[in-house]
C-alpha cells in the first residue's frame, strides 16, 4: 500500500512534471501571465469599488457593505472561472499531441516511463500552474470576507468549485490531446468542452425553463407530484453540472439557512424535497469524470501505434 508521502515523492520525481514546470517557469512568460491575471482582477475590483462609491446616496451602511461584499465576491469568482476556462485547455490540450508532432513521443515510449506517469506529469504541470493563478489571487478573493456579506463557507465552497473546475478542464485537455494527433483539433475540442460546461449547460437549462414555463403557464400545481419531482431533479442535476449555477445555488441555499449539505426545494403542494447541495454533486461528478478521462488517456497513450 502506497502512503501519501510516498505518492508525493513519486509525483515530485516524475521527470515529465519536473521538465514541464522547469520549462514553463523559464523566461518571463509565466510571470507576465500571472501579472496580467492579477492586474485584471485588481482592476475589476477597483472599478467595482468606484461604481459602489458613486452609487451611494446615503453614505456607507452595513447593508450596503454587505451588498458590495457579495458583488465583489461574485465578480472575483466569475473572473477566476473565465480565466480557468481559457487557460486550462491552453495548458493541456497540446500536451500529448505536441509530443507526437515534435516526434518525441517515441523517445519517451522506449524509456521506462509509464504512460500513466507521462499523462500524470503533463496533467499536473498544467494544474499546478492554474493553482498558482488561483492561489496568487486568494488575497483578492477573500477581500469580500473582510468587507462583510460573505461567509467563510461560501468562499471555501467557491474555491473548491474553482479547483474542481480546473481539475476537470485540465483532464479534458489531456483527454482530447491523447485522442487526436493534431494539436489544433484537440485544442478546439478542449475549449468546446469548457465552454459547454460553463456556458452551454446554463443556456440549455434556461431554455428548458423558459419553454416549460411557457408551456405550463405558471400552473405548476396542475402537474402530478411525480412529474414535479422529476423536473426538479433534472433541474438540480443541470444546476449541479455547471460551476456558475452550482455556486449560485449553493449561495442561495446558504442564504435560505438550509446549510451546506442539503438543498431543499418546494413542491406545488407545499411539501419539500431535499437533494445533496449542488456543490457536492459537482465536486464528486467532475472528480470522477476527470479520473475517467485521465485513465482513458493513459490507456490511449500506451496503445499508440499498436
Amino acid at each position: 500500500m502506497i502512503t501519501l508521502s510516498q505518492a508525493g515523492r513519486l509525483l515530485l520525481r516524475n521527470p515529465v512534471l519536473v521538465k514541464e514546470v522547469r520549462t514553463r517557469m523559464r523566461g518571463g512568460r509565466t510571470f507576465i501571465v500571472l501579472t496580467i491575471h492579477l492586474l485584471a482582477l485588481a482592476g475589476a475590483l477597483a472599478a467595482a469599488y468606484l461604481l459602489f462609491r458613486a452609487s451611494l446616496t446615503t453614505g456607507v451602511n452595513l447593508e450596503a457593505r454587505r451588498l458590495f461584499g457579495k458583488a465583489v465576491f461574485g465578480l472575483m469568482i466569475w473572473m477566476e472561472l473565465i480565466t480557468i476556462s481559457f487557460i486550462a485547455p491552453a495548458l493541456t490540450s497540446g500536451a500529448i499531441a505536441s509530443e507526437r508532432e515534435r516526434q518525441t513521443l517515441d523517445l519517451l515510449r522506449v524509456t521506462l516511463l509509464s504512460s500513466r506517469a507521462l499523462v500524470l506529469g503533463k496533467y499536473l504541470s498544467g494544474l499546478v500552474f492554474i493553482f498558482l493563478l488561483v492561489l496568487s489571487s486568494l488575497p483578492l478573493q477573500t477581500l469580500p470576507f473582510v468587507i462583510g456579506g460573505v461567509l467563510a463557507q461560501e468562499i471555501l465552497v467557491a474555491v473548491l468549485i474553482l479547483a474542481v473546475t480546473a481539475v476537470a478542464f485540465c483532464a479534458a485537455g489531456i483527454f482530447f490531446s491523447s485522442l487526436f494527433s493534431r494539436v489544433l483539433l484537440s485544442t478546439v475540442l478542449a475549449y468546446a468542452f469548457a465552454i459547454f460546461v460553463v456556458f452551454g449547460i446554463p443556456m440549455i437549462l434556461l431554455l428548458v425553463l423558459l419553454v416549460l414555463g411557457a408551456g405550463l403557464g405558471g400552473a405548476i400545481d396542475s402537474i402530478s407530484l411525480r412529474t414535479q419531482m422529476m423536473l426538479i431533479f433534472i433541474g438540480w442535476l443541470a444546476v449541479s453540472m455547471t460551476p456558475g449555477a452550482t455556486i449560485v445555488a449553493t449561495e442561495v441555499a446558504l442564504l435560505d439557512q438550509q446549510g451546506l449539505l442539503l438543498a431543499r426545494l418546494h413542491l406545488g403542494n407545499g411539501s419539500e424535497v431535499a437533494f445533496p447541495s449542488p456543490w457536492i454533486f459537482y465536486v464528486v461528478f467532475y472528480l470522477l469524470v476527470s479520473i475517467g478521462m485521465l485513465w482513458f488517456s493513459a490507456k490511449r497513450v500506451s496503445r499508440i501505434e499498436m
Binding site: R13, P15, R22, Q103, D106, T111
Partner: peptide
C-alpha cells in the same frame, strides 16, 4: 536497449544537460 530514431526529437526549451537529465529520470 538504447534506441536512436532517424529523427531528432527536440525539446527546444531544454538545455543540453537538462535534456539528458530528463531522459535519465525517464530511465529511473
Amino acid at each position: 536497449i538504447g534506441y536512436m530514431p532517424d529523427y531528432f526529437g527536440v525539446y527546444p526549451d531544454l538545455r543540453v544537460w537538462e535534456y539528458l537529465d530528463f531522459f535519465a529520470g525517464c530511465y529511473q
